[in-house]
C-alpha cells in the first residue's frame, strides 16, 4: 500500500530534469503545511550524481540519484525531538515546516547522503516531500517523475509496480530502513580493454578473454569483437586477472587488476607464434 519511486539508472540520460523541476516547484513557492520554499540554490531534494567510468577511449557515464527514501522505518522520524516528522498513509515522509524547531537531529540520523538540508534563513530542515501537496490535488506523478523523459523515474502505487520492485534493490539494506525508493541497474564495475596484432597492425577479433576473480576463483569469458574490444560489466570491487588467448598467438596474462574504479586495462598486443 502506498506510493513508491523506482529509479532505473540504465534509463537515465543525465538531463537533470528531475533536479530542475523540483526547484521549479519548491523555490519561491510556499506549500505550507507540506513544505516551505527551499532557497534558490544549494539544496537538491533530488540530486543527480555523475559517475564517470573508465579512461579514453573506454569511457561511460552513469547518473545516480540521491533522494529522500521515504523509509517505512525512517531514522529521521525517531530522531526528531520536536516530533515534526511524520509518515502519511500514502507512505510519504514529511518534515512539517510549522513544527520543525531547527534541532537538526534528522540530518545526523539520516544515513543517506544529500537528502535532508538545513535552511538557515527559515531555521528548518527540508527535503523531498514526495510532492504531497500535488498528490493531494489528485496528481498521479511527482514533478520529477512527470518531467523524466525516459522512464528513469517511475512513481506510482506499490501494487502496480511490484514486478519492477521485485527486480530492484534498495540502498543500505543492512540498515533496515525499508525505503520506498527502489533502484534498478546501479552500475557495478567494468573491466575493459582491446587486443591487437602490432605486426599486422590489425585489431584482433575472436580473442578469448578470461576474467578470473582473484579471491573467489570465479571465471567469466568473453570474445573480442571486430575492434578487438572486450567489456566485462557488473563486476564487484576486487582484484582480477585477465587471460588473453587466440589460437596461433602467444597468450598473455594481466594480474592484479583492481576494480576499485572501473578500469580500462588498455590496448594489449598479441604476437603470432613463430
Amino acid at each position: 500500500m502506498g506510493k513508491v519511486m523506482v529509479i532505473d539508472v540504465a534509463k537515465c540520460n543525465g538531463c537533470y530534469n528531475c533536479q530542475i523541476v523540483c526547484k521549479d516547484e519548491h523555490v519561491g513557492n510556499d506549500w505550507t503545511p507540506i513544505a516551505k520554499p527551499q532557497p534558490d540554490t544549494g539544496q537538491f531534494w533530488t540530486k543527480v550524481e555523475e559517475i564517470i567510468r573508465g579512461s579514453v577511449p573506454k569511457v561511460k557515464m552513469a547518473y545516480m540519484h540521491s533522494i529522500c527514501q521515504h523509509c517505512d522505518d525512517a531514522p529521521c522520524i525517531k530522531a526528531c525531538s520536536a516530533k515534526a516528522i511524520y509518515k502519511r498513509d500514502d507512505g510519504m515522509v514529511i518534515i512539517d515546516p510549522t513544527k520543525c524547531q531547527g534541532h537538526r537531529n534528522c540530518i545526523d540520523a539520516c544515513p543517506y547522503p544529500n537528502v535532508i538540508y538545513f535552511n538557515w534563513d527559515l531555521n528548518i530542515a527540508q527535503k523531498c516531500s514526495g510532492c504531497a501537496h500535488l498528490l493531494d490535488r489528485g496528481w498521479k506523478d511527482t514533478r520529477c517523475s512527470e518531467a523524466c523523459p525516459t522512464g528513469a523515474y517511475t512513481f506510482g502505487e506499490e501494487e502496480d509496480l511490484k514486478e519492477l520492485i521485485a527486480k530492484a534493490e534498495v540502498l543500505r539494506p543492512e540498515l533496515k530502513t525499508n525505503p520506498r525508493v527502489f533502484y534498478l541497474n546501479i552500475p557495478k564495475r567494468f573491466v575493459a580493454g582491446a587486443v591487437y596484432d602490432p605486426e599486422a597492425d590489425e585489431c584482433l577479433a575472436e580473442v578469448t578473454i578470461t576474467l578470473t576473480d582473484s579471491k573467489s576463483g570465479k571465471k567469466l569469458t568473453a570474445k573480442t569483437d571486430i575492434y578487438g574490444d572486450f567489456w566485462f560489466e557488473g563486476l564487484g570491487v576486487g582484484s582480477y586477472s585477465v587471460g588473453i588467448e587466440k589460437s596461433g598467438y602467444l597468450s598473455q596474462k594481466k594480474e592484479g587488476i583492481s576494480t576499485e574504479k572501473d578500469i580500462n586495462i588498455g590496448d594489449i598486443p598479441l604476437y603470432k607464434k613463430v
Binding site: C15, N17, I20, V21, D24, A147, P149
Partner: peptide, 8 residues
C-alpha cells in the same frame, strides 16, 4: 517530452 532549458 521536454528538456531542462524549457522547464527552468
Amino acid at each position: 517530452v521536454l528538456g531542462p532549458l524549457t522547464l527552468a
